[in-house]
């Protein structure tokens, strides 16, 4: 596959792009950032095409897409606009501006991968196994990470409720 032509690469994009785009959307939480990640992912794939052996194109593209989506999280912090699309939120009727700041601060303090885990699990409804598969890690690792993140979010919500 070292000789992937432009035409072949465009075919690869047409054939597998939707799945990569769906994963990028799930991680980024909005279409604009997801499409930026998608473009960056396929640009990286184009540059790395000589290394691709042609055997598992979707797995290859999803790995590159995941990394591109995490880069977008790193740069853009999309939760700034709506952190409660990323972590469980207090009742909207009781939500205060400080809650939004606290939630943003919490998401800012974790790694992009961790923020992605939160989003995939609680906003997108991905299974633990799906997240583990997508991030090439163990289900145990995902569970433990989510438990720690949830614990921090719970402390925050309790503080809001006590205020």
């Amino acid at each position: 596959m070292s000789g992937l032509t432009r035409a072949e690469f465009h075919e690869l994009y047409a054939g597998y792009g939707p799945a990569a785009r769906a994963s990028c959307r799930a991680i980024c939480g909005n279409e604009a950032d997801a499409d930026e990640a998608l473009q960056e992912a396929f640009l990286s794939a184009w540059r790395a095409r000589k290394r691709f052996d042609g055997r598992h194109p979707l797995a290859w593209l999803q790995t590159i897409g995941r990394n591109a989506a995490l880069q977008v999280l790193r740069k853009r912090r999309p939760w700034v606009d709506d952190p409660f699309a990323w972590i469980k939120a207090p009742d909207p009727a009781t939500r205060q501006p400080q809650h939004t700041l606290d939630a943003v601060r919490l998401l800012d303090s974790v790694r992009p991968e961790d923020a992605a885990y939160l989003r995939l699990r609680y906003a997108e409804g991905w299974r633990i196994g799906e997240i583990a598969e997508h991030f090439e890690t163990s289900q145990r690792s995902v569970r433990r990470k989510l438990e720690r993140l949830e614990h921090r979010a719970r402390i925050l919500v309790r503080a809001w409720e006590a205020a």
């Binding site: 432009r6 690469f9 465009h10 994009y13 047409a14 792009g17 939707p18 799945a19 785009r21 769906a22 959307r25 499409d35 998608l38 473009q39 396929f42 640009l43 184009w46």
Partner: peptide
């Protein structure tokens, strides 16, 4: 995600 898949821009 397949709906209106953006055009791919390669250098």
């Amino acid at each position: 995600a397949a709906v209106d898949l953006p055009m791919l821009r390669l250098p």
